[in-house]
Design a protein around this nucleic acid. Structure first.
Lengths: 146, 146
DNA sequence: TTAAGTTGTATCTATTATGAATACAGGTAT
DNA sequence: ATACCTGTATTCATAATAGATACAACTTAA
C-alpha cells in the first residue's frame, strides 16, 4: 500500500511554478518536468486551484501560485490532492461479531489510536513549506557543483 | 488510498487470543469474531508468527501470544503484517526530467520529509500496546453497562 | 472572424493491491 | 482410520492508480 504520487507531484508543480514564475508554466511544460502526461497535471492543478493554492484560468496558458511559497505548507498540498481522507488513513474491518467482547468493542478502542497516528503524520507535514522545498532544491543543486 | 485492514485485524486477533486464553482460538473461531474467512486469519497469523508475536503449530487447533500483552506494541503488529514497507508509505513519481532544476532535485529534496512523516506515524504506534487495547475494550464494555 | 493553443473533463485501459473463496497437502489427535 | 486443523496456492471481484485519447469551452493572435 502506498499513498498516491499525486502528493509528490503536487509539490513538484508548486515548486516549479515558483522557480519558473518569470516564464509560462503550461500543463505540458509541467508534465515534461514531472515526466507524466498533461492530463494528470491538469487534474492535480484543478485540485490545487480548488483549494486556493494556485491560480489558473481556462484557455489561458500557465498557472501561478496563489500565495507566497512560505505560506503553503505541505499538509495543504496533501489535503488538496485528497490522497487520504480525514480519519481514514487506516481501514478497519467491518462488522466484527457483536456477540464477542472483542468484536463489539474493537473498533471504538482502536480508532483513537489510528487517528492519533494519522494526525502525527499530518503534523509533520505542517512543519514544511514549499519555500523550504525550493531552498532544499537549490541547495542540492549547489552542492552538486562543488 | 487506505492502509490495509490487516493491521486492525491483527490487533483484533492478538487481543482476542489474550482474552480467550483459557479457551481454544482456532482460525475459524477468530474468523467468526473478526467476521471474515479463516484463510485470511491464517495468513495474518502466519505473519504474526514469523515476527515472534504468537505461537501456532500445524495441525494443532488454537494459537497463543508469544509475549505478554504489555510487550507487544502496535507498531510491532503494523510491521508484522507488512501493510507498509520502510521508507515507502508515500510513493514518489519516477524519472522526473533531469534537464530541469526541479526535476533533477525534487526526489532527494522531498524524500526526507516524507520519511519523517512516516516515522512520526510509527512512533505514535510505539506508544500503545496490546494490553492498552485490551484495557480499553474492557473499559468500553463496562461503560456501556452503566 | 478564423485558426491555433490551452484548460477542464470524461472515458478507456492496464496494472496493482485487497479481501473473499475454494481446494488441498501435511500435521495432530482421538 | 477418521476427523480436524494449519499452511499455502490459486482463483475471482473490486477498487485505486496512472497512462492515454478525445473533445467541449475559452482565450488570444493573425
Amino acid at each position: 500500500m502506498q499513498i498516491s504520487s499525486r502528493f509528490s507531484v503536487g509539490v513538484h508543480i508548486l515548486a516549479l511554478l515558483d522557480i519558473n514564475k518569470d516564464g509560462i508554466s503550461s500543463s505540458e511544460f509541467l508534465a515534461g518536468s514531472v515526466n507524466t502526461n498533461p492530463t494528470l497535471i491538469r487534474k492535480i492543478m484543478g485540485m490545487l486551484k480548488k483549494n486556493g493554492l494556485i491560480e489558473v484560468q481556462p484557455g489561458i496558458a500557465g498557472a501561478s501560485l496563489a500565495k507566497a511559497p512560505s505560506d503553503i505548507r505541505l499538509v495543504d498540498v496533501y489535503k488538496a490532492v485528497e490522497v487520504v481522507k480525514d480519519q481514514e488513513l487506516f481501514s478497519v474491518h467491518e462488522n466484527p461479531l457483536r456477540e464477542c467482547l472483542v468484536g463489539r468493542n474493537i473498533q471504538e478502542s482502536i480508532t483513537p489510536v489510528l487517528s492519533a497516528a494519522q494526525i502525527a503524520l499530518e503534523k509533520e507535514l505542517e512543519n514544511v513549506t514549499i519555500e523550504d522545498i525550493i531552498k532544499e532544491i537549490k541547495k542540492k543543486e549547489k552542492d552538486q557543483h562543488n
